[in-house]
């Protein structure tokens, strides 16, 4: 609904929008700045903004002394593992529901979504006991499977809304031209489905990376991802703001950048197609 306005009005609006945006972004900016400060500067009063000796020392300390690498690796394995596993299971299902629309497809989709409504705290006890029983507590496999199941409804829904937009007429045209089912899928449908699959993958990696109920409750050390790593900073010892900041930046930066790329698809994905 953008309309023509006077340059003066546009300048005022621009200034206001940027101020609001910078206020919202400020905690992130402040964390990034603090991560480059020596510890005493990080707690200096009055606060120091830019005028300090920038250094990567905090990053070095966090990587070398706090074992950042293993947590990062666990995050990568769990976030990508659960999403890819989920995609392998979800793609055929979403595909079938989008192209072979039966009378019960809608009910099935709603039922799948309803499994997402189960509060994690409600099923903490059984999942924990099952994990203990199978000696799976604190393993990458457990976390991968749990997060996969948690996000499976979202993955199916997102893929379904994307697949639904692929015109069926094209399929019929290809069939008329004598395309086999295999050709149909590989040469006609796949190229059209790739963008939807990519954004589903991206958004669900982000959700899994930041998931912090199961990752905090089902891991101790071996399979602990970055959420647990950061939570470990909640009982501080001595000066630690700069190190906390460096650890935080290393935990959120990869996903923040992925997030910036996915923001256009975010609305659709997270509202299950209800807002476009």
């Amino acid at each position: 609904m953008a309309r023509a306005v006077t340059p003066a009005r546009k300048t005022v609006n621009t200034a206001a929008a940027w101020i609001v945006a910078l206020i919202i972004f400020f905690p992130i900016l402040w964390t990034i700045l603090t991560s480059f400060k020596p510890e005493p500067v990080a707690v200096a009063s009055p606060p120091v903004f830019l005028n300090f000796d920038w250094s990567f020392d905090n990053y070095r300390t966090v990587i070398q002394q706090r074992g950042y690498g293993q947590f990062f690796w666990n995050s990568v394995v769990i976030a990508f593992g659960s999403t890819i596993l989920g995609m392998i299971i979800a793609i055929p299902a979403a595909w079938a529901m989008a192209f072979v629309h039966g009378p019960r497809t809608k009910d099935l989709l709603m039922w799948m979504l309803s499994t997402k409504m189960m509060p994690a705290a409600g099923v903490l006890v059984p999942i924990y006991l099952i994990a203990v029983y199978f000696k799976m507590l604190d393993t990458q496999i457990l976390l991968t499977v749990v997060l996969m199941l948690m996000n499976l409804p979202i993955i199916i829904w997102m893929l379904y809304t994307y697949f639904r937009e692929i015109p069926v007429d094209i399929l019929e045209a290809a069939r008329m031209d004598g395309a086999t089912l295999f050709n149909e899928i590989v040469y006609v449908l796949t190229p059209m489905a790739v963008p939807g699959i990519a954004s589903t993958l991206l958004l669900n990696v982000i959700l899994a990376w930041n998931e912090s109920f199961w990752t905090l409750n089902l891991t101790a050390f071996n399979a602990a991802p970055l959420t647990k790593f950061i939570a470990g900073f909640s009982s501080p010892q001595g000066l630690f703001y700069a190190k906390l900041s460096a650890a935080s930046v290393m935990a959120f930066l990869p996903i923040l950048i992925l997030g910036w790329f996915s923001q256009k698809q975010l609305v659709r994905g997270l509202t299950f197609g209800a807002v476009k």
Partner: peptide, 29 residues
């Protein structure tokens, strides 16, 4: 943000950013 402004793209990116920060980081910061 919906008003005509300069730099709507960057403003959107700044505003959306907190959503991508994992909860323990946000809380501890």
């Amino acid at each position: 943000i919906d008003q005509p402004i300069w730099g709507q793209g960057p403003v959107r990116i700044l505003v959306i950013s907190p959503f991508f920060i994992m909860p323990p980081v946000s809380a501890l910061v």
